[in-house]
Amino acid sequence: MIPSIVSPLHEGKVITIRNLKYVYEGGVTALVEVSLDFKRGEYAAIVGGNGSGKTTLAKTLNGLLRPTSGQVLIEERDASQMTVAELAKTVGYAFQNPDHQLFCSSVEEEIRFGPQNLGYPEDEVRKNVDRAVEAMALGKLRAVAPLSLRLGERRRVSIASVIAMNPEVLILDEPSTGLDNEETEELMAKLKVLNDEGKTIILITHDMRLVADHAKRVIVLSQGRVLLDSDPRGAFSDLDLLRQSNLQPPAVTQLAHRLVERGIPKDIISPQELVFQVLRAGGIK
């Protein structure tokens, strides 16, 4: 068991999903009977192959898609009664492609856009912008044109523009796409700080290493159903189930599975653990 990092102060459900069903206009069923809860301060990952319904699920949480049936409660309020703009105050959604959100001529303006839309008073806008700039380490880039930045920086700007609306929950769609290792780690470190401050983080991804390294909870979706909901350790030990949802566990877990006969446990999710276990087993001859 991993000790819970959620302090009692933040406990309580921030998102409740009940029997959610979503059918696209053309008749394609994307979600079938999904029921989930997210607690305040959680760090979760929704994983699944293409077409598993993970993006659809995320879009129902901020009202971009309205469920065919079932219910989504955001902080105890029925999401179907709220506009996308109202929901954005609680559920922030950073799209996969930052270029779909960036249009202003400076980073500062870009980050102001969200809180201004929500009609926050000027001093609050300024406070939120400063906090978002700091959270994504964009201080030096405030006056720069967002579209002239590198992809890693552009993604941080687009995430900052969502954080600036001060949402309780931050959903990130494939945050590691197109980033190198260093940029990804840099971004994840900043998300960790936000999570420690009590924000709920939900990653949507098929990057299993990202999940193993950072998430505390993994929700595996396949064909619109929740196949598994556990900690990463539990999720990665079931290879068959992952394969069924077109996912591959991180390389280190796959290696551990091959070393089972040598006394290495299956539920390994980090290189350090593997090294420790190998040394404990007396090394590999």
Partner: peptide, 8 residues
């Protein structure tokens, strides 16, 4: 993407 940033 812009509606998610409160654009109406």
């Amino acid at each position: 993407a812009q509606r998610a940033r409160g654009l109406e």
